[in-house]
Computed example of a mutant assay.
Amino acid sequence: MFPPPSSSCPDLKALLSLFGVSGQIREEIPGDGSLRRFFRLETDIGPLVAIVPAPGGLFEARCWWLWAKFLYRKGLPVPRPYFFWPEEGVIFTEDLGNWHLEKAYQLNNRVDLLEEAVDILLHLQSLDPHKAPRVFLETTTYGRQLMVFKESAAFVAIFCHQGLKIEVPLSVARDLYSLARVAEASFDQNPVLLHRDFQSRNLMVKDNRLRLIDFQGLRLGPPAYDLASLLRDPYLDLSPSLEEDLLQAYLRLSGRPEAALRRQYDLLALHRHLQALSAFVRLTRAGRRHFAAYISPGLKKLKDLVLRDTFTPFSSLKSFILDLPVDASSLTT
């Protein structure tokens, strides 16, 4: 007997029947960091997953559907989008299973899948953004405003104030603003499609190949952000030598100027670390305790990063980060 969804969930069997498909719920799938709900279904056309939006999430569901159809048509390895019921925001899509890149690398040392992830990123960045859907979940582009108000401000408010209970000196805040300005100045006039959460838990493994998920927040932006999200992912905690090998592979295959790409990579990796650390604290304090394990590795990566020459001009920020306590256990209470 399959367990029914809660009364707050749409009748998934009834919705499926509207598309001429019969099926039943097998299980609810944990949503990791998402407020959406996911159900695995057995149907007469094979296993599917139903994605039920969070309260107020109809636009997010529409973004997912439009981007999924576009990426699938362009040959990106994303789950096949089957059906969408816009009134409820419910999506029926291909079931990719439960195995993702983090598990494949940590348990089986699948470096080949990391190389495949770089190839997928290059494929995504090769698409013409002018032919992509003009629907954006938050902002059209990744730029200074998002860096300051979504990444730096979250680090100050959630990681420092709420988590560590420490004040951030004005000189550090000034460095964070200057850093965003300098990072934005590194962007060229040809933005690429940017996932903004291109990390190992958003790369599922099915039939020994990677499949990209959680792309509803796609926007336009610089190429190095997603690259840094993957290669400096705290879930993976890659060695510096492997990070360098994969960065070299990206440079060789993309043909981008090395010096400019490396500088942009450093600047955006820092913003990515600020975002990830605040997210780990927020999610842990919200009851998703498994994220606590990634706070200390993420902080160590941030400390290692600011030792690079790129951050010499930002001395106040550099000193502040290096002085942060390595033991982050107090952040989760």
Rank of each mutant, 00 (worst) to 15 (best):
L96P: 01
L96A: 02
L96E: 02
G97F: 00
G97Q: 04
G97W: 02
G97M: 02
N98G: 05
N98P: 00
N98M: 01
W99T: 05
W99I: 03
W99Y: 15
H100I: 04
H100V: 00
H100E: 09
L101K: 03
L101I: 06
E102I: 02
E102K: 12
E102Q: 13
E102P: 00
E102Y: 04
K103N: 09
K103C: 01
K103D: 08
K103F: 12
A104F: 01
A104W: 01
A104C: 04
A104S: 12
A104M: 04
A104Y: 02
A104G: 04
A104L: 01
Y105E: 03
Y105C: 06
Q106V: 04
Q106K: 11
L107I: 00
L107W: 05
L107Y: 03
L107H: 05
N108G: 01
N108M: 07
N108T: 06
N109S: 08
N109F: 03
N109C: 00
R110M: 04
R110P: 00
R110F: 02
R110E: 02
V111K: 13
V111F: 07
D112M: 08
D112K: 07
D112S: 11
L113G: 07
L113F: 03
L113C: 01
L113N: 05
L114I: 05
L114S: 03
L114Q: 07
E115R: 15
E115S: 14
A117E: 09
A117S: 15
A117Y: 06
A117C: 10
A117Q: 11
V118Q: 06
D119Q: 14
D119C: 04
I120K: 04
I120Q: 06
I120L: 13
L121K: 09
L121Y: 08
L121A: 05
L121G: 11
L121R: 09
H123Y: 03
H123V: 03
H123I: 00
L124H: 09
L124Q: 05
Q125S: 11
S126W: 10
S126Y: 11
S126D: 13
L127M: 12
L127C: 11
L127W: 14
L127T: 13
L127V: 12
D128A: 11
P129C: 13
H130C: 09
H130E: 15
K131L: 15
K131Q: 15
K131I: 03
K131E: 14
K131A: 12
K131S: 14
A132L: 10
A132V: 10
A132D: 12
A132Q: 14
A132M: 10
P133E: 02
P133K: 08
P133V: 02
R134T: 13
V135Q: 11
V135D: 04
V135F: 10
F136V: 11
F136Q: 08
L137A: 08
L137D: 04
E138Q: 07
E138G: 02
E138D: 10
E138V: 13
T139L: 05
T140K: 14
T140I: 11
T140P: 02
T140W: 06
T141E: 15
T141I: 11
T141W: 06
T141R: 15
